[in-house]
Each structure stands twice: as structure tokens, then as C-alpha cells.
Design a protein around this nucleic acid. Structure first.
Lengths: 150, 150
DNA sequence: CAAAAATAGTTCAACTATTTAACTATTAAA
DNA sequence: TTTAATAGTTAAATAGTTGAACTATTTTTG
């Protein structure tokens, strides 16, 4: 690929990626739940998927400091969506899991989210969306490797 | 597309999009300039590209409140990268432009950004990256329309 | 034309997210 | 058994955000 073409691609990528992220985040907050921030939603979603996990794991996955996780988790605990349980064998460890209320909230919200994302996905062909997500996943792997080699 | 396939695509999209965003933002802050946040960088980049613009325009484009723009612009003004100029004809309007220092910073940084993004882009085929960005741009247009109809 | 409405931007209070450093408690290693 | 390392929290500082109230200007309109 020649330099000129690369520069054009970079410009297009930079112009679009940040704005899409912002608008998608606003959409979630707006349409899904006024009281839930984007970060809190993705945190909750990750914990739900993993069933249980620790602050350290979340900090590593989300690429933030452990104290940032503590702060956000405090808010989710205050809302009654997350509970903390100490490991009886290694009493330093605290497990984070969804409460019953958290599970209910998640199931209810997941329907809304799916409807919202589905209405977007429908505007693309199956082939288009499949290759988009594949590239996204490849990008995620590359960024992950990059992070690990530093 | 049948329901099952759609749900899988949604799961994959949600799993990957937030993390990529986070990691890309961290990368910019880390590799490019410790003192520049991701938001500030994209704000500066937009102003640079438009040559000059107003808070109202930025608020609309970035999908945030005008007072958020004021706050961020204050920080960029404090850093000496952005200057405010009042419109002489309509004295309510304030134009935001890059200072000389802002321009220098941008040119210097753009080289680093390009190198960084290029090293990522090189891991993809031209066809792959082209169709990825096209889909991204289409998504941006759809989100924009969605916002306007609300 | 003067009062009312609209527009551009700022300020302020409240909140969320984040980092860094210092800290507690616990476990593992020397 | 002292020393390291690990897991997590707390506290202070900074950034980003919203919404409401505000100032200063046009624009509209009765």
C-alpha cells in the first residue's frame, strides 16, 4: 500500500471512530437506562458473562487501575446490582457477582439493547456485518498483544 | 438473517467494541502525549480540520452539552493550544482556533499518530481495512440520522 | 419600535471516571 | 519468621459530563 492511501485511511478512521463511540454511548444511556452509565453497563455485562470475577481481573481487562474498578463497583453495589463476597481460602480476594436484582436488571435491559442493536444491524448485509466484527476482533487481539509486550 | 445469528453478532459486537475503544484511547494517551486526553485530542483534531468553529457546533458534533465543551476548551486554552475570538458582527459567537503552538503540537503529534495507526493498519489487507472503515462510516451516518430524528 | 423570544456562551453544583500514592489485610517466599 | 508480594480500599487531585441559572447579545413579533 502506498503512503498516500495509508494516510487517507488513517484520516478516515480517526474521523469516524471517536464519534461513533460517543454517539453509541449516548444512545445506550439515553434509550436503555438513564441511571446507568456506559462504563457501568459494560462492567456489569462482563461480570454477568463471567458469572463471577475479581477487581484485579476487571482492571486488567478494561485497562484501568484497580481503584477505578473499586469506585465503579461501589456505585453498582449502592444500586443493589452487584454484591461482594470474600474468598474463604484466600481472604485477600473479593468476588464480584450480580445480585438477584442485578440479574433481573440485566435480563430486562438485554432485551432493549438487542432491539436497539438489531435495528442498526438490519441496515447492513450479513456479509458486511460479519466481516466488520471479524476485523474488530482482530484489532482487539492486536491491541491486547501490544499491551502485553509493553 | 435468523434470530440466532443476529444474537451471536450482537454479543460479539458488544464484547469487542467497548474494549477496543478503551485500549485505543489508552494507547493514544500513553504513546502520544501524557498530558493530552483522548477527548482533548479529538476536539483539537476537529478544530484543526475545520480551521475554526464554535462551541455549539462542537457540542452538536460530539454529542455533548455545550458546557462540557466550554470546560474542555478552557483546558486547551490554558495549555496555550486553542484561542478564542469573538465574532465582531454577532458578538454572541466565539470562534475557536488553534494557536501557533497548537498547530505545532498538532503537526508534531500527527506524525506519531500516523506511525502508530500505520503499524496497526499494516496488519490488515487493504481490502479488509477499506471495507471496515466503509462500514464504520455507514454506521456513523446511521447514528447521526437517528440522533436527528429524535 | 419596544417587549418578548431565541441564541451563544459561561458559571456553578453535583456527579462519574480516572490516576497515583499511601494504606490494610492477607498470603507466599527467603 | 521476617520480608515480598498480592488483593483490595481510601483519599486527593484532575477530567468529563449534565442541567439549571445566568449574561450578553440578536431576532421576532405584536
Amino acid at each position: 500500500m502506498q503512503r498516500e492511501k495509508i494516510n487517507v485511511l488513517i484520516e478516515r478512521y480517526l474521523s469516524v471512530s471517536f464519534l461513533v463511540t460517543k454517539k453509541a454511548a449516548a444512545l445506550v444511556k439515553c434509550e436503555i437506562d438513564e441511571d446507568m452509565t456506559n462504563d457501568q453497563y459494560y462492567l456489569l455485562r462482563y461480570v454477568k458473562k463471567r458469572e463471577t470475577c475479581t477487581s484485579t481481573e476487571l482492571a486488567s481487562v478494561f485497562g484501568v487501575n484497580k481503584s477505578a474498578i473499586t469506585a465503579m463497583m461501589n456505585r453498582l453495589v449502592d444500586k443493589g446490582l452487584i454484591q461482594r463476597t470474600r474468598d474463604e481460602n484466600d481472604r485477600r480476594v473479593v468476588y464480584l457477582t450480580l445480585t438477584e436484582k442485578g440479574n433481573e436488571w440485566f435480563v430486562k435491559t438485554e432485551e432493549k439493547i438487542h432491539k436497539l442493536v438489531e435495528s442498526l444491524i438490519m441496515k447492513f448485509s450479513e456479509q458486511e456485518i460479519e466481516s466488520f466484527i471479524q476485523t474488530y476482533e482482530k484489532l482487539a487481539r492486536i491491541l491486547q498483544e501490544l499491551e502485553e509486550t509493553q
